Amino acid sequence: MTELTAPTTRLHSAWLQAHAEWGPGLHEDGFGLRPSDEVESPAGFAAWVALLADASTPKAVAAGQGCTYRWIVEGDRVHGGIALRHGPNDEVRQFGHIGYGIRPSSRQRGLATWALGQILDEARALGLDQVLIVCEVDNLASVKTIERHGGVFEEIRDTEHSPVRRYWIKI
């Protein structure tokens, strides 16, 4: 059964397999991974998981700076990640409230659509009435996922890396 689970050190090996599948230099939305994060060693991975947990504490959420991270898991296989930024802050304005990514071998199974529906329920529970979702212009799979959940296209905006589509979903 597929579930959204909070990041956990129990899935270190499974997460590393998903991470390796993206390949070096590729972008993994939804995991909150920064270039400075060391995730190979058990200690480094545990420190990173702790940082993700700290981002979703009531204090961070109350300050509007929080982020809820969830992994898309089936058994002991990590299919991807999804993040709900609680903003309104610069990160939300640039990247949206929600970011997600599915590992290449798990795509085209409806996992992103399912996970987005689940995280929209969490956004509703936080009291958000609408969320911004941003995707790369040529990511047609993400466009379909967003539109399936009622995403309304706002604009294409140039960013530092590439042009992106911006969508709003009313909750």
Rank of each mutant, 00 (worst) to 15 (best):
H27E: 12
L84V: 07
A55W: 04
D121E: 14
C67L: 03
T68R: 11
A141H: 04
F95C: 07
A123M: 10
W114S: 02
D158C: 09
Y69G: 03
Q65C: 06
G81D: 01
A112H: 01
S13T: 15
G96A: 00
A18E: 08
A62Y: 08
H19I: 01
G75N: 04
D129P: 11
I102R: 05
F31I: 15
D29M: 07
E122P: 09
D29T: 00
Q118N: 04
C135V: 03
R85E: 00
G150S: 05
L128F: 10
L52C: 09
A63G: 11
E160M: 10
D129E: 15
D54R: 10
D37M: 05
A53Y: 00
L11S: 09
R70G: 10
V49F: 06
Y100P: 02
I98K: 00
F95G: 02
D54S: 09
V131S: 03
I98V: 15
D76F: 07
G127F: 10
A47K: 12
Y69H: 15
I98S: 04
G110A: 06
K170Q: 10
H12Y: 07
E74G: 06
P42H: 02
R34D: 12
G64V: 13
N139T: 12
H97G: 04
W48P: 07
Q130S: 14
R34H: 13
L4P: 13
G110P: 13
A83Q: 14
S105H: 05
G44E: 10
D29F: 13
C67G: 04
H19M: 00
F45L: 04
G151W: 07
S142W: 06
P7S: 02
A18L: 14
I169M: 06
E28S: 14
S162N: 04
A125L: 14
C135H: 09
I171W: 03
G80S: 02
Y69R: 08
A47N: 09
N89Q: 02
C135I: 00
E147K: 11
R165L: 09
L26W: 10
L132K: 09
A123V: 06
V61H: 01
P24F: 00
W48R: 05
G23D: 10
G64R: 04
A53R: 08
I133P: 11
T57G: 04
V73P: 11
Q118M: 15
E38G: 05
L4F: 02
I156T: 15
D158W: 08
P42L: 05
D37A: 04
L11E: 07
K170S: 15
G127R: 01
T9I: 14
A46M: 07
P24L: 03
R10L: 12
G87Q: 06
G117M: 08
A62R: 13
W71C: 03
G32R: 00
S56Y: 04
R165W: 07
A20N: 14
G23R: 00
L16R: 08
A46Y: 09
R70D: 09
A55L: 13
I133F: 05
A115L: 03
L51C: 10
Q94W: 05
G66V: 12
Q65P: 08
L111N: 01
G99E: 01
A50W: 05
A55R: 15
I72L: 08
C67M: 08
Q130V: 01
F153V: 12
Q17M: 06
S41V: 10
C135P: 11
S13E: 15
M1D: 12
G25C: 12
T2I: 15
G66S: 13
T9E: 03
